[in-house]
């Protein structure tokens, strides 16, 4: 049914996809293999395998502290962005008011403008008020993209809940507070979970904003990783990669959980659809 040319084209496209995926996986594997290797010079695989780099990375980079800080920051960001973002998403999903498009644009901007662009002025302001360098400074900086992210991600989740369900609850005498707790929140659990998990992944892997606002005691894992690569030569490459593996695990776990609630396409597409 299909011509030779079409088949050739198809083969080419798939060859590229396979090439790309293989390279991505190989790149990730290199990091993992290296973190378990003893000495890896001029060969396909390290001479022998060991786990001692993990112990040394843990010690050298104070990974215990860094991990603690990372998850304190990520936890606070997720909680706050849900608390601030979900009600706003509810208002935007259910009400039409003058200036609504403007408000939507306001929420889209921090997602569309790259963090490094607004991060520098933001860091400047945070330095001025004395928040920069502290954990709260990092949390506030990370909230700037995650609050709008939660809002934009939650709007369609809320829109798909039939307003008649709410009307019914009101007819049966539920006030706004009880409506929220007993009717909306249970229906929104998948959406809220998806949004918060993705906000979590974003925060853990957010380099630019944390880099610009963190002090020595408020570094997250990804910034610590950057500094250790930057200062490479001082440390063994393997212990840097051991840290990289720990970092990977700390993001991928949440991603895997998040993917139970959303399609990978949606992770990037949601923002675009509202932008277009």
């Amino acid at each position: 049914m299909e011509s030779a040319l079409e088949r050739l084209w198809r083969t080419l496209v798939w060859a590229f996809v396979i090439f790309f995926v293989v390279n991505v996986l190989a790149m990730i594997s290199t990091v993992v293999v290296n973190s378990f290797g003893t000495r890896w010079l001029n060969s396909w695989l390290p001479a022998a395998f060991t786990v001692r780099w993990y112990a040394s990375a843990w010690r050298e980079f104070q990974l215990g502290d860094v991990l603690l800080v990372t998850f304190q920051i990520a936890g606070a960001v997720v909680l706050l962005s849900a608390l601030i973002g979900v009600p706003a998403a509810y208002a935007l999903a259910r009400r039409d008011f003058p200036g609504k498009p403007l408000v939507i644009v306001l929420f889209l901007l921090p997602l569309l403008v790259p963090p490094i662009t607004f991060g520098i002025p933001l860091a400047t302001v945070l330095y001025k008020v004395g928040l920069a360098g502290t954990m709260w400074g990092v949390i506030v900086a990370n909230l700037v993209p995650t609050v709008p992210f939660t809002v934009i991600l939650m709007i369609p989740f809320i829109e798909q809940i039939d307003p008649k369900v709410e009307a019914a609850a009101r007819v049966f005498g539920a006030g706004t507070g009880r409506l929220f707790v007993h009717v909306l929140v249970p229906l929104l659990v998948p959406g809220i979970l998806a949004a918060t998990l993705l906000a979590l992944v974003r925060t853990v892997s957010m380099f630019e904003l944390t880099f610009l606002t963190a002090g020595p005691s408020s570094q997250t894992l990804v910034v610590a990783l950057y500094y250790s690569v930057f200062a490479a030569g001082v440390r063994a490459g393997q212990s840097i990669d051991a840290m990289a593996v720990i970092y990977m695990l700390s993001t991928l776990v949440w991603l895997v959980v998040a993917l139970r609630f959303v399609n990978p396409t949606q992770i990037v597409a949601r923002v675009k659809k509202s932008a277009a």
């Binding site: 991505v24 190989a26 790149m27 290199t30 992944v201 892997s205 990289a244 990977m248 991928l252 992770i267």
Partner: peptide, 28 residues
């Protein structure tokens, strides 16, 4: 799509570190 979402999730710092090994003169 899940495999492809990996590099986005891992972020540029990790990809850079991975590529330093992978693309290096001794890399695979």
């Amino acid at each position: 799509t899940t495999i492809l979402v990996l590099p986005i999730t891992l972020g540029t710092v990790l990809v850079a570190e991975g590529l330093l090994n992978y693309l290096g003169p001794q890399g695979w």
